[in-house]
Design a protein around this nucleic acid. Structure first.
Lengths: 207, 207
DNA sequence: GTCTATAGGCCGATAGAC
DNA sequence: GTCTATCGGCCTATAGAC
C-alpha cells in the first residue's frame, strides 16, 4: 500500500492523492488545477509538468480507484460457510470495500451514473462485473446443491445486492432521512437486514 | 400538463425546458447559459432577464422535477388487489413514473448523490419520502393481516425497492453490460423479477 | 523539477439601445 | 421583452527563468 509508481516523483503522488479526493468531493468541473496544486503544495505549472492535461490527471485518479477496488476484492478470503452465511459475508465484504475507500467509491459511482455505453463496458470489466459474477456463481452453485429455489434468476438477486450496495454508498444522506431506517450508520446491520430479507422473503411459509 | 405558470412568458418556459434537459444530461457546471439560450432560441441576456442567476434557473428546473414526480404519485390509482400484487403494482408504478420523466429523474438523482444533510431533508420531504412511507404502510398493513412475516423490518424492504428503482434509472448502462441480465430494457420484467424475489426469497420452503 | 508570469478563451452577469 | 456589446474574472495550458 501507498507504493509509489516507478518514475513518479513524490510530488506527483501528492498531486494524484489530492486530485482523487477533490474530484470525488466536488466533481470534475467544480475543482480547478489551481485548487489541486494548492492542496498538494506545488505550483499550478508543476501539475502540468507531470500530467499533460486536467483530463489525464482525472483518468489517473479514476484508474487508481479501479485498481484499489480490484485489489481488495482479490484479497478477500474464500470462506466455506453454509450458503446463507456465505452470501451475507460476500455482501458485507463488498460493502466494507466500498466504505474503506469512500473517495474512490464516489469517483466510480459518479463516473457510472448515466454514463456512455463504452464507459459502462469499462467499469463493468474493471469493477462491477467481478462482484456480479462471483455473486451469480455463489447462487448458481447453491441452487444445484439443492439448498435454494432453482426457479429464481441469479442475475436478479445479484442486481439487487449491487443496487443495495450502490444505494448505501451513493445515497447515504437520503437513507439517513428516511423514516424508520435504523441502519444508515451501521453497515453490518444493513447487510444483515438485506440478506435476511433476500434469503427468506416476505411471505409466510405455506401452511 | 404543459400548463404555463402565471406571469411567465412562453420564452421563459422554453428556457426552463431546455435548462432541465441540459442540466440533466451534462450537469450544472458543464452547461453554460449560452448553450441554454441557444437551445431555447433566445439571447443570453434574455435568460438573465427572466432569471436572476444561473443558480436560480437551476433551482426552478429542480423544483419542476419535484413537482412533476409528486403529481404523478398523487394520480396513482388505489388498487385493492391481493398483497403481493399490490406491492408489484406499486413498484412498477414507481418505476414507470421515473421512466416517464427521465430528465427530471436524472436531475433528482444527481442532486441526491452524496448530497448535504439539508438537501437530503428537502428531497425526502418532496419526493423519496412519499414512496417510502406508502411502501412501509402497505407492508405493515399486510403484516397485521397475517399474510406476511411479522419479524421483517418494513424499512428494509422499502429501502431495497427504492434502491432497485434508483439503480435502474441511474445505472441503466451498467445494468445493460452485466452478464446474464435480460431485464435492462424491460421495466415490467424487472419489476416482476425483483418483487417475486422479495416476496418468496431465495431459500426453499422448510421441509 | 520547480517556479513566476502570462497567453488566450469561455464564463456569468450587466449596460443600454430598441 | 428582446437584443448586441462588453466587463471583469477564472479557467486550462504554455513560455521561459532558475
Amino acid at each position: 500500500m501507498k507504493s509509489q509508481q516507478p518514475g513518479r516523483t513524490e510530488a506527483a503522488e501528492r498531486i494524484i492523492d489530492a486530485a482523487k479526493r477533490m474530484f470525488a468531493e466536488t466533481g470534475y468541473d467544480a475543482v480547478s488545477i489551481r485548487d489541486i496544486a494548492a492542496a498538494a503544495g506545488v505550483s499550478k505549472a508543476n501539475v502540468f509538468h507531470h500530467f499533460a492535461s486536467k483530463e489525464e490527471l482525472y483518468q489517473e485518479a479514476l484508474h487508481r480507484s479501479c485498481a484499489k477496488a480490484k485489489a481488495v476484492l482479490c484479497e478477500m478470503a474464500q470462506t466455506n460457510h453454509e450458503p446463507g452465511e456465505q452470501l451475507r459475508s460476500f455482501f458485507y465484504s463488498d460493502l466494507s470495500r466500498s466504505l474503506a475507500d469512500p473517495d474512490g467509491s464516489r469517483l466510480l459511482l459518479a463516473e457510472g451514473f448515466d454514463c456512455s455505453e463504452e464507459q459502462a463496458k469499462y467499469l463493468v470489466s474493471q469493477v462491477f462485473g467481478h462482484d456480479f459474477e462471483r455473486l451469480t456463481e455463489i447462487i448458481a452453485n447453491d441452487q444445484t446443491k439443492g439448498n435454494w429455489r432453482s426457479e429464481i434468476d441469479p442475475a436478479a438477486i445479484a442486481t439487487l445486492m449491487i443496487a443495495a450496495n450502490t444505494f448505501f454508498i451513493a445515497y447515504r444522506q437520503i437513507l439517513r432521512q428516511l423514516p424508520g431506517v435504523d441502519f444508515a450508520d451501521d453497515p453490518e446491520r444493513y447487510a444483515d437486514s438485506i440478506v435476511e430479507l433476500l434469503l427468506n422473503g416476505i411471505r409466510k411459509e405455506e401452511q
